[in-house]
Design a binder for these strands. Structure first.
Lengths: 192, 192
DNA sequence: CCGAGATATTTTAGGCTTAAAACATCGGCA
DNA sequence: TGCCGATGTTTTAAGCCTAAAATATCTCGG
């Protein structure tokens, strides 16, 4: 460690030898979060002002719209990426409002199936039309090529995150089933 | 629908004459939201598991860490992009936990100034180190060039969204003050 | 000095969110 | 048949979040 060459170590070498810092990734994450929050808050405000509906309710209706045969609560929670217990009250309020109907499955009495009523379907159609326009408006300064590029890069990001989710969970002794699942091994070859 | 000229309208014309559809923008928005949610949920879970801290608390401490002289509640709410009333309870809990201290400004008794205690500063330092590593881990499959590219494109997106925020508020008869404001948005200059 | 607005924060009412525990039901199996 | 572990949903406790109203204080013109 008293190597006389030490005095010749320049900035570049230092960068190579020190644990690499990851400020670039951190900045990217913060920017991603900012973009999402900006859009989300604006859409939330407009949904409220024009339709008196909250974002979670709109999201729930959107999922059901895409599945005309209805969905179970578990399917909903997985697609909306919210916790299971969350849906109970959310669905309840929309049932009360007449926007959707809920019925216990005949096959499996644990399962609750939910679908839009025709009232809910019509209400959603009107909101979805506006919503699409709002997004287009907010994104107006992006060229078609920009959109395609971000889609691709975010696709890569999504893959990276998914591949590394749960990787840190070996810290404690909890069960790790991910290695038994297709395509999401924590050690799935990553080289950079 | 039964316009006799309809038979002569080709696909290109239809595209030009119909309200353009914006499915590409919509897909991009959904992907953006997915990426953010994936990262956010994972970071939230790790902060909880390793430090027993919530994401909003971490965010609050991060803002204060960047401002060693402390911040007012208004500055905090603007930087964190959350509503003002939200902060009262959030700050209160962290004060109780000894992580930060709150004092009424001597200059202006409406103003509350908040800063990290040395305990809070140390706690945050440990968390921030881990946090940076987690983000790097989740983003590991992105090359340096990818990161730079997404940063640029998201910068453009951010600009687009900011430029169009509030533009849709003239729809109904409600008061629109935005045109009388110097420039809306959290980053606009403040005077105190 | 006074009062009208402006500004900073807190309070209120309602809703969203999670993790974890509780409850209900199902399917397999001895 | 009777139990046991897995699965689907609800409940609970705590906290986060917003919009809007209420409160407190400041600034400034008269």
């Amino acid at each position: 460690m008293d190597d006389p060459n030490a005095m010749f170590i320049d900035a570049e070498t230092v960068v190579l030898e020190r644990p690499r810092d990851h400020k670039a990734e951190l900045r990217l994450w913060l920017r991603l979060l900012t973009c999402t929050t900006l859009v989300e808050d604006e859409i939330r405000a407009r949904l409220r002002a024009d339709f008196d509906v909250t974002l979670p309710r709109f999201d729930l209706m959107a999922q059901l719209h895409k599945a005309p045969d209805g969905l179970t609560l578990s399917q909903l929670s997985s697609r909306m990426m919210v916790s299971n217990g969350n849906l109970t009250a959310l669905v309840e309020r929309l049932v009360e409002a007449g926007q959707l109907e809920r019925r216990v499955s005949a096959m499996d009495r644990r399962v609750v199936n939910v679908r839009l009523t025709s009232v809910g379907e019509r209400a959603f159609a009107a909101m979805a039309l506006q919503h699409e326009g709002w997004i287009a408006e907010l994104f107006a300064q992006l060229e078609d090529a920009d959109i395609e590029q971000i889609m691709t890069l975010l696709g890569k990001l999504k893959g990276s995150v998914r591949a590394n989710i749960g990787a840190g969970q070996k810290r404690d002794g909890k069960l790790d089933l991910s290695s038994t699942m297709p395509s999401s091994g924590p050690e799935s070859g990553h080289h950079s």
